[in-house]
């Protein structure tokens, strides 16, 4: 195999004019992904981006790799075919909250449970942008949109819980306003063998501007979010004085120094845990009840992958009985001669 050339970001920028609204969070995500690409050690021709429909799904056109912009909700099923056919490819899926979790919900849970080695980036802006402002499966209950003028009566999905509930072997969350952190988790997602779900909270400037404002603006973000780091205590807050402890079987938010709480009392994050109990608990943090929104890699575990297992079935069958020939097959079993 020839060596991978050394690339720069520019090598991954296609000649297509980018058509997202000015100020859209998608620009930051694209820039982060294009920054990460040269770090993969993967040849450009071995990278394929697949998307469905929605603003985020324009993504493949802008990447100078192989790519498919497909139909609404089906990106994961199509990407499954790409990866299953050629496990050597690095396959990335750019999808949105509607594409992945509404019309594509069935494909999402099944791709995740199969643990096929795809990198799924969910651009979660909690709104339908391309159809101009209807509520999505991640819109908050009560969200006032064009199709919910009195406020949505739908309870939303939590992408982290849906992923982990479908046995995801990797889940991470990032924010479009923090590209450096985004690049870290994208790289971790690539390095994870098996399905990787990355949720990016993405701002839709037109239809849901500042939807995630309290997690992104400088004044509040340190107190409303918590960066997860493997092996480090769960600590957050402007003054790094808040943290998470276990109170019986439930997590609880505490302030270091108050009521005798020490940093050593805090839960230590274990992204590589042998089970997803801690990750699932993190996914259930209720930000309305004072919990911080966890950011970073929740969970990164090992399991055999669909694409490799399928390839192994083919390889071992050929190794065992040789590459099958049709003429031999047709002549096998019960045959008879007519003279």
């Amino acid at each position: 195999m020839s060596e991978c050339p050394s690339y720069t970001k520019k090598d991954f920028v296609s000649d297509q004019e980018v058509r997202w609204c000015p100020g859209c969070g998608d620009y930051a995500i694209m820039s982060s992904i294009q920054n990460v690409m040269p770090l993969l050690g993967k040849k450009r021709e071995d990278v394929c981006f697949v998307s469905g429909i929605g603003c985020s799904s324009r993504f493949p056109y802008y990447m100078e790799t192989y790519g498919m912009h497909t139909i609404h909700g089906r990106a994961l099923a199509i990407a499954t075919g790409v990866k299953a056919q050629n496990p050597n490819l690095s396959v990335w899926v750019a999808t949105g909250d509607g594409d992945a979790l509404a019309i594509g919900g069935n494909h999402f849970i099944h791709a995740v449970r199969r643990n096929i080695d795809l990198n799924i980036i969910i651009f979660n802006n909690q709104i339908y942008g391309l159809t101009k402002g209807q509520y999505s499966p991640t819109s908050k209950k009560g969200a006032v949109t064009k199709t919910s003028p009195q406020g949505s009566v739908d309870h939303p999905f939590n992408p982290a819980s849906v992923s982990l509930g479908s046995d995801a072997t990797f889940f991470a969350r990032g924010i479009d306003t923090d590209p450096k952190h985004m690049q870290e988790i994208l790289l971790a997602a690539y390095n994870h063998k098996g399905v990787s779900v990355v949720e990016i909270l993405q701002n839709c400037v037109i239809f849901n501007d500042k939807g995630s404002d309290r997690f992104t603006n400088k004044a509040t973000r340190d107190d409303t979010t918590m960066k997860l780091e493997h092996g480090k205590p769960m600590i957050f807050g402007k003054n790094k004085d808040k943290g998470i402890v276990m109170d019986g079987i439930r997590p609880s938010v505490v302030t270091i120094g108050e009521n005798g709480v020490k940093e050593s009392d805090l839960i230590v994050h274990d992204a590589f845990s042998t089970d997803d109990v801690l990750a699932f608990m993190l996914s259930r943090f209720n930000t309305e009840a004072g919990f911080p929104l966890p950011l970073g890699v929740f969970y990164d575990s090992k399991k055999t992958t669909y694409d490799q297992d399928l390839q192994e079935l083919v390889d071992s069958a050929i190794k065992k009985s040789g590459k099958g020939k049709m003429q031999d097959l047709l002549n096998s079993g019960d045959t008879w001669d007519i003279k």
Binding site: V50, M68, A77, I78, G81, A84, H107, V314
Partner: peptide, 22 residues
């Protein structure tokens, strides 16, 4: 499998054809 055939029993009819398109 020894003829190099890969079969994917997908989650529904739509995924069946979509995986084939991929």
């Amino acid at each position: 499998k020894n003829h190099g055939v890969k079969t994917c029993q997908m989650e529904d009819e739509i995924a069946g054809i979509c995986s084939a398109i991929g």
